[in-house]
Amino acid sequence: MAISESIQKMPLAGKLCCFLAGLQALAVIGLETYILVIVLKDIGNVFASWSSDKGVAIYFLLLVIATLFGLFLMIGGVMNGDTIQIIGFCLFNLFAMSLAIFRFYQIRTWIESNIFVGYLVYPKVKDVMLASIGVMAAFTAVFGVLAYFLYIAFGWEIYKRVGADMKIRRMYVNYRTMVFLLKIDFFVFLGFAVSYIILVLKSSDPEFAITIAFVPVTMSVLFLAFWGLRRESGPAMWTFIFLLCGSAAYFVYKCARMFDPKQEAKFLTQRPMMTYYTIISLVVISATLHQAISCLANFGYGLKERIEITRGKRSDMEQIQDYYVNAAGDRRMNLDG
């Protein structure tokens, strides 16, 4: 019942965004499935060994998961009236499109290197790969226009949630941006770990077990950050910031190893894509680190109480700092600040 009421109250631009995000997901999944079927049918050694040949399937899997993850971001952003997440979705869609572009050149190089059937397969999938990029580019442009209308439509919702105090509103924007970045961190970290394990490492490599352990540790750290942000826990946020700096050092180390002459044979054709993904990861980590410090600086200034009130956890208006009780016992509005 609550979901149906939320859909009815949703602005037209929001309904269009959700519909188009679903349509984009179906279109991309259909195109990617067609490409993968053609490649698997004509090139039989894709899964023959623990090698870089698996890049054909991994790139497609990343694009499909990115599209579904984007759909989750858009629906969540519209349902919650979260303009930060909606704008972030548009940027994420650009990132997914860039993965498709990289995939195009990587797959072309890999297929053309297969002298037996590569010259037969590439013409079959070339136009479909370009169509996948074109579909994502067109939808991204439309989402950018609709995001503007949603920004205007949801502006009043933000005002009702946090009030007219500009300081509180700035803190709330920092808070929502941090929540969005934690979601992006989840996708980026998990995508990098899976790609690195399957495309680069072998089960006998010492890094293999370390990289696998990196996944649950990363998820735990992200959960700690979200918990600390919601509870305004200084120790939790400082721990997250420290571990995030460690993650940045880890990605820098991985990037350096990719250009180590001794490791050249391990990466082969995967270096351009993995280097790009590593750079994106470092950019996301830097943005998350900046927002974590900004949110930490906002702890204790009333944002937590305001958010609890908007969620119905605190209904007593005497708990709002915009009110005070005078000497006669009457509650008055505080206009200071």
Rank of each mutant, 00 (worst) to 15 (best):
E232A: 02
A256I: 03
W238A: 07
L222Q: 08
F214L: 07
I210S: 06
A248H: 02
A265V: 14
P216Y: 08
G246A: 01
V221L: 11
G246K: 02
F240G: 12
L222N: 11
S247Q: 09
F226R: 12
L268N: 13
G234R: 11
V217R: 14
Q270M: 08
M237R: 06
F267R: 14
Q263H: 13
G228K: 01
C245T: 15
Y250L: 13
E264N: 08
F259P: 03
T211D: 07
T269Q: 12
W238Y: 08
T239Y: 00
M219V: 06
Q263S: 13
T211L: 08
F251P: 01
V215A: 15
T218F: 07
S233C: 03
I212N: 14
T218P: 00
K262Q: 08
F223A: 15
Q270L: 09
T269Y: 15
Y250Q: 05
A249R: 01
F267A: 05
K262G: 08
F251L: 05
E232I: 00
I212E: 07
R257D: 13
L224D: 01
S247H: 10
M237Q: 14
W238Q: 08
S233D: 12
S220I: 14
R257I: 06
F226Q: 15
T269M: 08
A265I: 07
L224R: 04
W227T: 06
G228Y: 00
